[in-house]
Simulated assay, not measured.
Amino acid sequence: MKKLLSTLLFSAGLILSAQIGIKTESPKAKLDVNGDVNFRNKIVVLNTTDNTLFQGNNDQLLVSQGEGYPPTWKTLRIPEYETNKFYLIFNNSFSNKTGLKFTSTEQSAITSRSTTFAKGNDISAFSGFKKIEGLSPTIKVFSAESKTYFQFETVVQATFPANTSPDISIDYACGIFVDDKLVNLRQRNLKASSASSTFITHNQIGVVSNLSTGEHVISVACSRLKSYNTTNDVVLAIGINASDNINDFITQSSLKVDVYEIPQVFNSITN
C-alpha cells in the first residue's frame, strides 16, 4: 500500500511539474535526460497542419527550426569532391550607379606610384582614393588553398572640350582591396578626342591566392592622379556620367567575385 501511494504521489508530482528528469533532480525541459539515449523504434514529428505523425524518409536528419517552432526532417547532401581539385564555392555580382567624381582640387598627392602601388599596401597610403559604395561585399573562405577572382567594370568620363595640341588628358587609377590591402590595380590615361566629354570603358581583372580562412571585405577605390593641360573646371567621373551625352545606366559600375577552393572542411548542405 505504501509503495502504491508513493507511486501515485510521484506520478502526480510529475503531472503537476510537467517535467521529467532522468539522473537529474532539476530538469530543464519536459524530458531532461542526463546520460545516453538509445532509441529502439522510431522518432516521429507532428505535422501541425493535419495532426499526422511523420517519421521522415531514409537518410533524413531532424533539424531545428529555432525556438518556438517544431523540428523538421531535412535531407543531407554532401558534394562529392575530388582530391586537390578547385571548386567554385562562392560567386556573386554587385553594382553601383552613384560612382565617384573628382574636381581638379581632388587630384591625388601621390608622387611615387611605383612605391605606393605595391601589392599588400594599406588603403590609408593611397592619397586621394575614394571607395565606390555598393562594391564592398563580405566573402567567407573555408579552405587554406583558394583562388579569388575579381572582375571590375565601369565607365570613365571627363568634361573635356575638344582636344587641342598639346593633348588634354587625365591619369587615373582603380584598385581592388581585400581587408583594405591592395591586391590589384590598373592605371590608365583618359585623353580628349575630337568631340567633347570623352568617355571610355574600364575593365579590370584580378586574382589573389590563399586568403586566410574566415571572412574578408572586398572594396574598390579609384583616384584622379594627374591632369595634363586641363582647365580647373574639368571634372573626372568614374562610374557615373560627367556630361549628359551618356547616363548613369551606361556608366554604372559592376564587380563580380568568384572564390574557388580545394575543400578541406566538408560543410553540410540541407534542402
Score class of each variant (00 low, 15 high):
29 A>L: 05
18 A>G: 05
23 K>W: 13
72 T>E: 13
82 E>H: 12
184 N>T: 08
242 A>M: 05
34 N>T: 09
73 W>L: 06
225 L>N: 10
153 E>F: 04
48 T>A: 13
238 I>W: 06
201 T>W: 00
57 N>I: 01
123 I>R: 02
145 E>C: 06
203 N>E: 11
263 P>Y: 11
43 I>K: 07
195 A>G: 13
105 T>P: 00
222 C>E: 05
129 F>N: 00
271 N>P: 02
8 L>W: 11
159 T>C: 09
78 I>Q: 05
2 K>G: 10
31 L>E: 04
68 G>C: 03
196 S>G: 11
36 D>F: 13
266 F>D: 14
102 F>H: 02
237 A>P: 02
241 N>D: 15
246 I>T: 14
216 H>G: 05
32 D>A: 10
18 A>M: 11
269 I>L: 11
9 L>M: 09
260 Y>G: 09
44 V>P: 00
138 T>E: 15
148 T>Y: 08
137 P>C: 04
244 D>M: 02
11 S>C: 15
35 G>K: 04
192 A>H: 03
79 P>C: 07
206 G>P: 08
154 T>F: 05
179 D>W: 01
240 I>S: 15
161 P>V: 11
249 F>G: 14
182 L>D: 01
130 K>C: 05
193 S>K: 09
108 S>C: 02
121 N>W: 03
107 Q>N: 07
30 K>A: 13
217 V>P: 03
154 T>E: 03
184 N>F: 04
162 A>L: 08
81 Y>E: 14
256 K>Q: 14
238 I>P: 03
33 V>G: 01
67 E>Y: 08
226 K>S: 12
92 N>S: 15
26 S>G: 01
10 F>H: 12
230 T>M: 04
55 Q>D: 12
237 A>V: 04
66 G>V: 04
18 A>D: 12
122 D>C: 02
115 T>C: 00
90 F>I: 06
147 K>E: 15
196 S>M: 10
192 A>E: 03
237 A>F: 06
191 K>E: 12
121 N>L: 07
133 E>V: 10
12 A>G: 15
56 G>D: 11
59 D>H: 09
234 V>A: 02
137 P>M: 06
207 V>F: 07
94 F>K: 00
56 G>S: 08
87 Y>N: 14
17 S>T: 14
16 L>N: 10
231 T>K: 03
165 S>Q: 13
256 K>Y: 07
143 S>Y: 08
11 S>F: 15
69 Y>V: 12
248 D>A: 14
10 F>T: 08
75 T>S: 15
71 P>Y: 08
35 G>L: 08
263 P>M: 08
132 I>Q: 04
196 S>I: 15
38 N>H: 10
80 E>H: 10
103 T>K: 13
219 S>K: 06
143 S>D: 09
187 Q>R: 12
129 F>P: 02
227 S>M: 07
187 Q>N: 11
98 T>L: 14
152 F>S: 01
42 K>T: 14
114 S>H: 03
232 N>D: 15
63 V>M: 15
